[in-house]
């Protein structure tokens, strides 16, 4: 019985996760500049992949594999923000302008540590 419920749940998680991946891709295509695109890639992308890895943990029924799926998820959570932060910093320091819709800009390039 519990196997059936877990399988239904895993299927649901799979659909949700791939939907988030698709939305991240749409966001990367639709948003206007580098910095806003980074929001879509780092958040929706991490969420989608994380949900799919969680779905594996629900169908595995093996302690080692469940732990490994969780480890992969945690690893993803640790690396995704670092990658996004590094890219945003590199883009800003090399002078890639944000979109004209930007309403406030308190970032001063002189105060940053190159």
């Amino acid at each position: 019985m519990i196997v059936t419920i877990f399988q239904y749940f895993a299927g649901f998680l799979m659909l949700l996760g791939s939907a988030f991946c698709l939305l991240a891709a749409v966001g990367i295509l639709r948003l206007p500049d580098i910095y806003t695109r980074m929001h879509a890639a780092s958040k929706a992308g991490t969420m989608g992949t994380g949900l799919l890895l969680t779905a594996i943990a629900f169908v595995a029924f093996d302690g080692a594999i469940i732990l490994r799926a969780i480890a992969a998820f945690v690893f993803l959570l640790l690396t995704a923000p670092v990658a996004a932060h590094l890219l945003a910093r590199a883009a800003f320091l090399t002078g890639h302008k944000p979109t004209e819709m930007t309403i406030i800009n308190e970032l001063d390039i002189k105060k940053l540590d190159k």
Partner: peptide, 28 residues
């Protein structure tokens, strides 16, 4: 907060008038 943020970004991306909703900015 992670779940909330992913859902919010997803809704924003799906909106037809996304450009009007968007007010990006750098904050100190």
């Amino acid at each position: 907060e992670l779940a909330l943020s992913a859902i919010r970004v997803a809704f924003l991306v799906l909106m037809p008038n996304m450009k009007a909703q968007l007010k990006p900015g750098f904050i100190a």
